[in-house]
Design a protein around this nucleic acid. Structure first.
Length: 406
DNA sequence: TCTGGGGTCCTAGGACCC
DNA sequence: TCTGGGGTCCTAGGACCC
């Protein structure tokens, strides 16, 4: 039976949220960045900024050159996440089969509900009305309608912002002719190059290509690629909540030039460890695996992970394990980025053993620190080592006294 | 004026256990 | 003593997405 799948994509999400919240920003070229410095990059551009050629992932200095009046706004991830959950809740009232795709997109299988609205387009109109009612008229979404996720995603991109695009079954081959290989979600620049080497330069060519040869080149992905070339995608919409889906929590930072030595990078690593720890605690998660990543001067990224046999959510411990990994991994002479990622996550509630007194005190300390920082602003309380004084940093093995072990 | 920062999924090999 | 095969966990690395 034919399915009806929607792909709902918020337009210029972060930027629209800021414009909705602050009327002074409306109608103006706005860009949301991590930090509002000229060295960062564009996380989201308002439609006005896009008109001057500003794109996401563009360096802010470049964006400013394209658009001298550009307003930089620091992002507020917590607020976006909160809004995202509301957004998904709205969509769920139309179908429980909701699959979040990033923070501002979702697939929705409305096959069973289309009849109630006479046509999928009518159903989408209702969704758009709900979104406007909930978020205000500055926040809009674009929706693609098609028989599968691949095509729905393609469709939502065809008319933006505030668009509704339906790809009917009869139109699939005409639409695919107009698309480039990388327009298909799942084909990036690397895969495109490999396809080109096989003589495949367009989507229909991919669909017609020998499956056997595709499998020889891409292994198990070969069959999927051929289907993609034909506009086919059997994958189901997998219901999940945004929260449930978190598989890892990590932070990384490109080092400013004067910190690109092994020694100077350590305080940065310590800060990142604290940040990862804080985020884990806030989500009430513990991590069983930690990964340390470094990028060298040639932009090669190397990583090494460790599963220490215990679960952690304490930044100092995370740092301590990161140091252990570093001893094995070694650091490049000129590290340009460092990062820590925590995975193998378990909810804190699933640990039932009573804590040893040392551990309990430590937990209490962190809880108080987190509370103070939430109440009075980030960075109100921090460990002395976070000031960047290298001699205050914990060393390998610290925080791992016997009493600390599970 | 090279190239941020947050993620996901997949594969493949090795260790270990039954 | 030698043998096979399956399952699971861990790690490294690649590719892709927003």
């Amino acid at each position: 039976m034919s399915r009806t799948i929607l792909h709902v994509d918020m337009d210029s999400y972060f930027a629209s949220v800021e414009q909705q919240a602050n009327p002074n920003l409306r109608g103006k070229p706005v860009v949301v960045t991590g930090k509002p410095t000229i060295k960062s990059v564009v996380a989201a551009a308002s439609r006005e900024a896009k008109k001057c050629g500003v794109e996401s992932a563009m360096a802010t200095w470049k964006a400013r050159r394209k658009c001298p009046d550009l307003i930089l706004v620091p992002g507020d991830p917590d607020r976006y996440e909160w809004l995202t959950n509301n957004f998904f809740d709205i969509l769920r009232t139309y179908s429980p089969k909701l699959e979040p795709f990033g923070v501002d997109e979702a697939f929705l299988d409305v096959t069973a509900r289309v009849r109630d609205y006479r046509s999928p387009v009518n159903l989408v109109k209702r969704i758009k009305e709900d979104v406007e009612e909930e978020f205000g008229n500055w926040i809009t979404c674009s929706v693609g309608i098609a028989r599968n996720k691949l095509l729905a995603k393609l469709a939502s991109d065809m008319e933006k912002p505030d668009g509704v695009t339906r790809i009917r079954d009869d139109d699939v081959s005409d639409v695919l002719k107009e698309m480039s290989l990388t327009d298909l979600c799942g084909i990036g620049s690397r895969t495109e190059k490999r396809l080109n080497r096989l003589g495949i330069n367009s989507v229909p060519e991919l669909g017609d290509f020998s499956e056997k040869e595709l499998k020889e080149e891409f292994g198990i992905d070969g069959a999927r690629l051929k289907l993609m070339g034909q506009g086919k995608d059997p994958s189901p919409v997998l219901p999940a909540s945004y929260e449930e889906e978190v598989k890892s929590v990590g932070n990384s930072l490109t080092l400013p030039e004067y910190k690109r030595t092994s020694r100077k990078a350590l305080p940065v690593l310590f800060k990142l460890a604290q940040k990862v720890g804080y985020r884990l605690r806030k989500k009430e998660l513990m991590a069983g695996t930690l990964k340390l990543m470094v990028r060298d001067g040639e932009f090669n990224v190397e990583g090494k992970q460790l599963t220490p046999g215990r679960y952690v959510d304490d930044g100092n411990l995370i740092y301590s394990f990161a140091l252990e990994i570093k001893e094995e991994l070694g650091f490049p002479a000129t590290p340009t980025m460092v990062g820590i990622r925590a995975s193998k996550l378990r909810s804190k509630g699933s640990f039932s053993q009573p804590l040893l007194p040392d551990r309990r005190k430590r937990e209490e300390l962190l809880r108080v620190m987190d509370e103070v920082n939430e109440e009075y602003g980030k960075g109100t309380l921090y460990f002395a080592a976070q000031t960047g004084a290298e001699d205050l940093l914990p060393s390998v093995g610290e925080f791992k006294r016997p009493g600390d072990l599970n």
